[in-house]
Amino acid sequence: MMKVALLGAGRIGQVHANSIAANEGSRLVAVADAFPEAAEKLAAQVGVDVKSVDDILADKSIGAVLIATSTDTHSELIERATAAGKAVLCEKPVDLSLERALTTFRTAESNGQPVMIGFNRRFDPQFAALKAAFDAGEIGRGELLSITSFDPAPPPVSYIKVSGGLFRDMMIHDFDMACWIFGGPPARVTAIGSAIVDPAIGATGDVDTAAVTLQWDDGRIAVIRNSRRAGYGYDQRIELLGSEGLLSANNVLENTVEKITTAGASAAKPVYFFLERYMRAYEIEWNAFVEALKAGARMPVTLAEGVAALACAEAATRSAKSGEAVAITADMLVG
């Protein structure tokens, strides 16, 4: 059984702790966090020790670390963990800086340890089924992809200030989905954004409402829509138009009851928050990481793919500021 340490005991760290515990092939043995109280609370809940990052990396019995710390620590921890001989699953994004992420890729490659980036939405059963049907040729050639991702409410402005911006923090999930579904990054990115949900977000220099168009050299197009506010719930949908049909993955609802009367029809709202929507995806993600390690197989989401999603976010950020399309150039990618 593989011994695992968790770096980061916040909200998402707690989710990952449960996923590690649920897998028969992994055992959580240590938790570290910059805030001792958070580490101690989670460690007590799952019955493990609190250790420093240094102690965890020095422990040769620990085979893997899951990095769920703040984004500004990801690159350094990936480099240190792989140098210490640990396999890594790291939450998105690799870094807020594309240049720094590229350096981390080169360092991790030279360290020779497997790294997976935590784009959990790939493992959502609805989206995975859409991808499988597309790959099986059920709608022919993919031509137009539409991704909708609306949060129920914006996060605190204190978080916005350190998030890296909507394109790097929120839409990066959708960039990864588009690259995953279409088999690689686009050639160019065009973005527009506004701060119309909360003026305080605009005051930080960020946007809370955005639309982005991705275009591949062969003409394929993806359109991504993000908003920090959808009062009816967590709106997560994908639609893919192909040469021979259409695939769509719709929202997960609070329940499946539909009421039809003479006054009309009604159904439940989407589940309200990302933990409700994607809890199962986090569990499947960890299982996939463990299975890949056992088999010595390619990571289901590679560090190179994490860099590609960040390249799209970087291009979108530039485009939204300049009003011009921004090309995804070779020096923004790896491999």
Rank of each mutant, 00 (worst) to 15 (best):
A267G: 12
T104C: 11
L98T: 00
M116W: 06
I117A: 02
I181L: 13
F127I: 13
M177F: 15
H173R: 03
L275Y: 10
A222T: 08
R27V: 15
M1Y: 10
P114R: 07
A38Y: 14
T82C: 09
K92A: 03
S110N: 11
P154E: 03
D135H: 04
S163F: 02
G140P: 06
D198H: 08
T69C: 10
Q215W: 02
L241N: 08
Q236E: 09
G47I: 13
A43D: 03
L102Q: 10
C312S: 06
E37K: 11
G202I: 01
E40F: 03
A187Q: 14
P270N: 05
A81E: 03
K60H: 12
P93I: 08
A304S: 14
A34V: 14
A311I: 01
G85R: 11
I201H: 01
R237F: 10
G142P: 13
A304E: 13
C179F: 05
A44N: 10
L240E: 02
F134S: 04
K41H: 13
A222M: 05
S163L: 03
L6V: 11
D169Q: 06
I160L: 07
T104P: 07
V252Q: 15
D198S: 14
L77W: 01
E291Q: 14
Q236I: 14
D169L: 03
T190Q: 07
A153T: 09
A222F: 08
K259Y: 15
L130S: 02
M171G: 00
D208P: 08
H16W: 14
R237W: 12
I238N: 00
S146M: 12
A22E: 09
L303A: 08
G245A: 09
G296Y: 11
K161Y: 05
P185S: 12
L6D: 00
K321V: 07
T104E: 04
G335P: 06
